[in-house]
Design a protein around this nucleic acid. Structure first.
Length: 564
DNA sequence: TTTAGGG
DNA sequence: CCCTAAA
């Protein structure tokens, strides 16, 4: 008792504990050996040897019991591993299979909460009476014993297997606590139910720590424990899962497998899993094993992707997210977008949150306003307000504004550019932003292909105002193109410059390097771009500009008309 | 806001 | 095309 108390963790440091246990184990080993060599028969307790001779080792037991009662339980604790012959493992495997197929009753299929051995039919331990030596039993008797033990029939004829199963079943059965059998020192012993029960009860409540187990079992007559190597494995650990299915698997394995029992994942493990789970894009849902766990997390916490269709009929995977304080569906791909929301964010917003727009008007305006084709700010503002009304969705707006835009374009542009602009209006519609166009293939989200007319306008604008006066050019030449910002002009000009110089250095190379699908820019325009660039970097804008117009203006027009 | 330049 | 630093 004293010793055992010393084992309590709270009274000793972990380190000390381990050390102490080691010493104890040594002693146990020694005494065990001693005891085995001195065993002498004489006792009245009912016992049943599992593997060994029928000779009784009652002396053994009584001695042990005595010692247990005299507070030397740990030292004297019978920790000997039951000798279970594993030579027929292979055979056992096949037997297991046959077992499953033939008499596979409510073994694994039954609900986990109700162990098979308890649910289908109760084991009848009263059938096991008196002194039984499994070794001497015939197969039939063994089967009977099996039935008594597990409460079900078996067709297995392998004696060894039956013996093992019976032994283990008796040891591990959930009903052991109510029976009077327990395994002790390689012997199946009929003991006082009370003691066994207490063992089981204690073990049930025992944590993984061996100290506790020792402690718990200290004053119990029989200790169903197995020593595997230096590890102590208590049979009572098996109480949780007496299912035959599980036992079968373990049968095949060595006894060490008992120490490798499946453990409930630690909290930490679960947390890590869920953490990574949350990080994962729910789109590629991981195997359900993670979720199947312990029901630790409510299903609601699992992100459920929602499939929506935006105006351009592109399927978007969205998830609930808080944007600007309001929970809205945002596309999965663009989580945590740095800048302002994409333009068609508004369409999604309006489709799914027509009334609740938690985002600032400013953001919304910049998002939507950019897509509005308008002649002036007033129209734009009007359009914006119009669109912002909750009931309107994107399609309606587009349909409404499309003709407007066309009119605008036609009114403003010179006759020769109307053609291009009409094409523009055709594929500039909002619906085409992300969808494949007939002409140029898939476009990026915010991309509007530069049409030739736009390019020409840009070039002319640059020639008139000079590169860098983007806002000026935008105001004059691109007033009707709300979607072309001054930055866009600048970017396009940059591209044009690149293209023009590329062409200048190597015409053929340029042609080849040009991306497929993008509209080729006529060489004359590129030439003019280069000249403008040179003029810009050079000196007198006016002079070179006029010179340029005189020289190549015509060719540009010619080429353009040629493209018309 | 606009421009210039990097990404 | 987007973003941002400067001006």
């Amino acid at each position: 008792m004293k010793n055992l108390h010393l084992l309590r963790p709270r009274q000793r440091s972990q380190k000390g504990n381990r050390k102490y246990i080691g010493v104890m184990l040594q002693q146990v080993k020694q005494e065990e050996n001693l005891r085995l060599s001195n065993a002498s028969p004489k006792h009245s307790s009912t016992l049943m040897t599992v593997d060994g001779q029928c000779s009784d080792q009652r002396e053994n037991l009584s001695a042990v019991e005595e010692k247990l009662q005299t507070n030397h339980s740990l030292k004297e604790g019978p920790l000997r591993t039951p000798i279970l012959n594993d030579s027929s493992n292979n055979q056992l495997v096949s037997e297991e299979i046959s077992l499953k197929s033939t008499d596979g009753l409510a073994v694994g299929g039954s609900s986990a909460s109700v162990p098979a051995s308890c649910s289908s039919s109760m084991p009848d331990f009263s059938r096991i009476k008196g002194e039984i030596c499994l070794d001497n039993q015939t197969v039939r008797e063994l089967q009977e014993t099996f039935r008594a033990t597990f409460g079900r029939e078996t067709t297995v004829k392998d004696k060894l297997w039956l013996k093992r199963r019976i032994a283990m079943g008796l040891t591990n059965s959930c009903d052991v606590s109510t029976t009077t059998f327990t395994i002790k020192d390689n012997v199946l012993v009929r003991t006082k139910a009370k003691d066994t029960q207490s063992v089981m009860e204690i073990c049930k409540n025992t944590s993984q720590t061996n100290e506790m187990v020792y402690d718990s079992c200290k004053d119990v007559a029989t200790i169903p424990a197995v020593k595997v190597g230096d590890q102590q494995v208590l049979f009572c650990k098996r109480l949780r899962k007496p299912e035959v299915d599980n036992e079968c698997k373990e049968d095949v394995c060595t006894e060490q497998s008992a120490s490798k029992r499946v453990r409930k994942p630690t909290k930490r493990y679960i947390e890590e899993l869920s953490e990574s789970d949350t990080r994962e894009c729910a789109g590629r849902c991981e195997s359900s094993t993670k979720h199947s766990g312990n029901g630790h997390f409510s299903p609601k916490s699992i992100i459920s992707p929602v499939c929506v269709f935006s105006t351009d009929e592109t399927a978007l995977i969205t998830r609930q997210d808080s944007f600007g304080g309001s929970g809205v569906q945002v596309p999965y791909v663009s989580r945590m977008r740095r800048g302002r929301p994409r333009e068609n964010f508004m369409s999604i917003m309006q489709q799914y949150h027509p009334n609740g727009m938690g985002m600032s008007v400013d953001v919304a305006k910049s998002a939507l306003g950019a897509r509005i084709s308008q002649q002036d700010n007033e129209t734009g503002e009007k359009n914006w307000k119009d669109r912002a009304t909750p009931k309107h969705n994107q399609q309606q707006m587009v349909a409404k504004t499309e003709p407007e835009k066309e009119n605008v374009v036609k009114c403003i542009d010179e006759p020769e550019t109307v053609y291009f602009d009409n094409i523009d209006s055709g594929d500039n519609s909002d619906c085409n932003l992300t969808s494949p166009t007939s002409k140029y293939g898939v476009r990026r989200k915010h991309h509007r292909a530069w049409t030739l007319s736009e390019v020409i306008k840009l070039v002319e604008g640059v020639s008139k105002y000079g590169a860098g006066r983007w806002s000026e050019i935008k105001k004059v030449a691109f007033a009707s193109y709300a979607y072309r910002t001054s930055v866009d002009l600048k970017d396009k000009w940059r591209n044009l410059l690149r293209a023009s110089f590329a062409q200048g250095s190597n015409d053929k190379g340029m042609r080849n390097s040009r991306k497929h699908g993008s509209m080729p820019i006529p060489a004359p325009i590129l030439l003019r771009v280069r000249q403008l660039a040179e003029k810009d970097s050079g000196g007198t804008p006016d002079l070179s500009s006029s010179k340029f117009i005189g020289c190549s203006g015509r060719s540009v027009l010619d080429s353009r008309s040629g493209y018309l």
